[in-house]
């Protein structure tokens, strides 16, 4: 269950202060006279709520695409109750901050359940049609129906504008969250040994990602107090001048911290490109194989990989992998 403040934050995001509400009302020509007329229709609204809401939901449940949003009877009962409150709210005769706040719930709730604006707008058209029918049956007089319906249209379109804006704001927020998730996934820094880090890069590197890589590398180096970081670019499809330049900058920044960078995964193709493009990577340690990079890095922290003595053939349990140990 989402809390009340969940949709109230859109008041701030959409800057729905008194001035903004007045400006919207002016544009939708939603006058005080309209609000008074709506308030005077309140008895009518109370009389027809049940009928309008019931008809509305039978339309929504008849359509396969909109039926999907109502899984069970409990949900249907709940939304019908909300809908009755919403309907009566149109005839409250007010359009203040509290009203607007209440209306923001609609867009936020729809975005959350993944109801696309087309269904919302389509359903609203049917809703208006039902209201018009009810008005005609109740008021009889054509002129009064016209005036009443015009006021209803104004407040409804005012509501729709709020709902759509909330949709957009909620979407934008989701985009921000995805960006953050991608950023975290795109620079997976691994601690391979005490004070040695490894960053295997996979996928294309554009300038935005390159910045993220540099920042992530610097943060990790300081956090781990790593003497050395190995950046493996075997998974980077294109290494052109720009990518090389970014890598050089990262290396230079790592050096300022007091650590070193080893670039591994340099394929024959990448070596050829770099030389042909005239990229000077002489300030970097570069290697083809990651395993060589790890050996070099271990050397920097005063360690080395040695091969253990071959195991005695009689005892298979004595098989030992290469061990990491001190050089001296």
């Amino acid at each position: 269950m989402k809390s009340f403040s969940d949709y109230r934050k859109y008041m701030t995001i959409l800057k729905l202060d008194e001035a903004e509400i007045q400006s919207r009302r002016a544009f939708f020509t939603l006058t005080d006279e309209d609000l008074q007329r709506l308030a005077s229709l309140r008895p009518f609204a109370e009389k027809v709520t049940e009928e309008v809401v019931e008809q509305f939901y039978s339309l929504l449940l008849a359509h396969p695409e909109t039926r999907k949003f109502f899984e069970d009877d409990a949900t249907i009962r709940r939304v019908k109750r909300t809908q009755r409150e919403y309907f009566l709210g149109l005839f409250a005769g007010k359009c203040d901050r509290e009203y607007v706040e209440d209306r923001l719930r609609v867009g936020a709730a729809h975005e959350r359940i993944g109801l696309a604006p087309k269904w919302y707008l389509g359903a609203y058209r049917q809703y208006l049609h039902l209201i018009l029918n009810a008005l005609q049956a109740e008021l009889k007089d054509e002129e009064r129906v016209r005036a009443a319906f015009q006021s209803i249209q104004r407040i409804v379109f005012f509501d729709v504008s709020l709902a759509i804006d909330t949709y957009i704001a909620a979407n934008a927020e989701a985009l921000v969250r995805h960006q953050q998730a991608i950023r975290e996934l795109s620079t997976p820094v691994i601690r391979v040994y005490d004070r040695i880090l490894l960053l295997p890069l996979v996928g294309a590197i554009d300038s935005i990602r390159a910045e993220q890589i540099m920042e992530s590398v610097l943060l990790h180096v300081v956090e781990a107090q790593a003497k050395c970081i190995i950046i493996d670019i075997a998974g980077v499809p294109v290494v052109d001048t720009r990518v090389a330049d970014h890598l050089l900058k990262t290396t230079a920044a790592v050096r300022l911290l007091g650590a070193q960078t080893i670039l591994t995964g340099i394929t024959a193709q990448v070596a050829r490109t770099m030389v042909q493009l005239g990229v000077d990577v002489s300030t970097m340690h570069t290697l083809s194989r990651l395993s060589d990079g790890i050996e070099l890095a271990l050397g920097m922290v005063g360690k080395a990989i040695t091969t253990a003595a071959p195991p005695a053939p009689a005892s298979p349990s004595a098989v030992t992998p290469p061990v990491v140990g001190g050089t001296s």
């Binding site: 540099m214 920042e215 610097l218 943060l219 180096v221 300081v222 107090q225 790593a226 003497k227 900058k249 230079a252 920044a253 790592v254 050096r255 300022l256 911290l257 007091g258 650590a259």
Partner: peptide, 28 residues
């Protein structure tokens, strides 16, 4: 030897084009 430069300081200097070549560095 210059020691203890913060990550954001290093990134900023490099972006400005200031790599401080010739200055030795250490983490701590």
């Amino acid at each position: 030897v210059l020691v203890g430069m913060r990550p954001e300081v290093a990134a900023t200097l490099i972006r400005m084009g200031y790599s401080m070549e010739g200055v030795l560095t250490a983490l701590n």
